[in-house]
Structures are given as structure tokens and as C-alpha cells.
Amino acid sequence: MTTVPLRIVRETDRGVRIPLAATVPTVESEAQLRALLASLSGVDAVGAEARAARLATRSIKKSTKLAAINLAISMVDLTTLEGADTPGRVSSLCTKAMRPDPRDASVPHAAAVCVYPDLVAHARAVLADSPVKVASVATAFPSGRASLHVKLLDVTEAVAAGADEIDMVIDRGAFLSGRIGQVFDEIVAVREVCGAAHLKVILETGELVTYDNVRRASWIAMLGGADFIKTSTGKAAVSATGSTALVMLEAVRDFAEQTGRVVGVKVAGGIRTTKDAIRYLVLVNETVGATWLSPDYFRFGASSLLNDLLMQRLKQHRGAYVRPDEFSGD
């Protein structure tokens, strides 16, 4: 056996070995993609659920909890994806993302603001040159039911309006009916029109039925050039769960070990409490290690989560439970 140079070898990295020399394989045909996916082993569903449940019982206290809360705040993609969104609402969301607690400058800023494409220009104007990124959902979010032409136009406009990150949805209909080549080609096409913008690929795991499908879809997205793979749109009946996040984190780990490319994970939908957020951080730390514990590689797509994080943070400082309406609603 030959030893390959390693980029990350730290005790905190849970033994993840990322080789410098390896590269992402080029996918030239659907048959090749199929063969690649066929080489992935099946997911032990019971084992994945048990492990996620076990890790969810970890207790994080005191200064560690405070550090986790601060880290989680810096990972929030503050999201508003409602039909009733207005420029005013987006403005207040942007202000909140830049300075989550106006009284306390030591609170880190959120990672990004996530809006519909038509509000990107507005968010861009408010955020100006702040470090908070503008993320936009695109490709006929949330269903993904439009022609490739329409989807690409959607992305192009969002990028032109100033989006730093694009959250695309995969075509679940095509995936479930076995047309994985089409799913892959779409991701590649979107990746191209994204240009410098980061690409997050939403798998909508709640519609993928099995963990095996989640693992395959994760690989398709990563092979197609995703910078992040994301659990859900938040619009389906089932959103992010610990066990699907675990499966995706393992896919990301395997991908990094085989190709040398580090892909991030974004969990979204139904994450409302600090306790939920910390559970995900534990899951990240125990599955892929400390490298991923950064807004560059892990994100929470959420809206009400930020207030709960701020509330728990204040509780840690004050020593008394805090009133929820101490923080702005939007």
C-alpha cells in the first residue's frame, strides 16, 4: 500500500483522511454514473437511526454550550420563503443577520440570508459589503417542476441580481423514476451558470423514501459539482432529521476521502430550538470532525431558530430564563 499525502490529519477529525492527490472522477455517461452509484454500499437504516438517536442524548453544558450556540448562530442561513414576503421584511431580516442582537456586538453575524430570487437585489442592497452572504433558492423551488430552460434562467437572474449562493432543488420525479442521468445533467448545467456563486443542492430527503436513495442522491449532487448538499426545502411534510443528516454527512466524508474534495452540508426545515441545533453539531463533530464545524461547511436553514439561540445565549449570561418576545419576530 502506498501512502498518500493528507490535507487534514488532526485528532479532532475523527480519522477522516483527505488525500491531496485524489480528484473528482469525470462522469461521461449515465452508465458510468450508474456503475459508480452501484458501488456504494447500502445504508443500515436501523443502525443509522439508532446512532443518530444515541448522539442526540449527548449533554453539552456551560462554556461548551455557549461556544456551540455562538457557532450555531454563525451557521444560520436566515430564511424567509413565503408568498407574503415583502422588501420590508427582507430588510429587517438582513439587518438581523448582520447584527442578531443589537445590544451585544459579541454575537456573531449569521452566515447568510436566504430569499426568493425576486428579492435578491433588495437583500444585496441592504447587506452591501457585509460578510453576510445572499443566498437564493432557484430552479423552480420548491417542486423543481419546470423545464431546464426556465430553471437555468431562474438561476442566471438570481446570480445577476447579486446572489452569492444558489440553493437549487433536484428533480425528484426524475430521480425516483430512475432517470438519474437527467438529474446529474441538470446539476452540472446549473453549476455552470452559477459561475462564482456557491451551489447548494437540495435533495428533499423527505420525498426520497429510503436512506439508500439519500446516499445516492448525495453522490450525484457532489459529482455534479455541489458545494453543499442540503436536506430539504422546508416545504415538504418531512424535513431534516438526525438520521438523514447522518447519512448525508457520511456521504460527504466518503466523498472527501475518495476524491479529496470537501463538500458542506446544510440541514433545513423544522429546526427551531437550540437543542435541535446542538444535536446537529454533535452529529457533525462525531461523524466528520471539526473541519466541518464552520459556516464554510455546515449550515442551518432556519428562521425561528435564531431567536431561540439568542434567547439561550442570553440565558447563559444572565442565569435566568429569558422572555421570548425580547427579540424581534422577523
Binding site: 442565569g319 435566568a320 430564563y321 429569558v322 422572555r323 421570548p324 425580547e326
Partner: peptide
């Protein structure tokens, strides 16, 4: 004391 200090 927890109840007395609870801000909500």
C-alpha cells in the same frame, strides 16, 4: 428562585 427570576 428559578420561578421568581424567570423573565417570562
Amino acid at each position: 428562585p428559578v420561578l421568581a427570576a424567570h423573565e417570562d
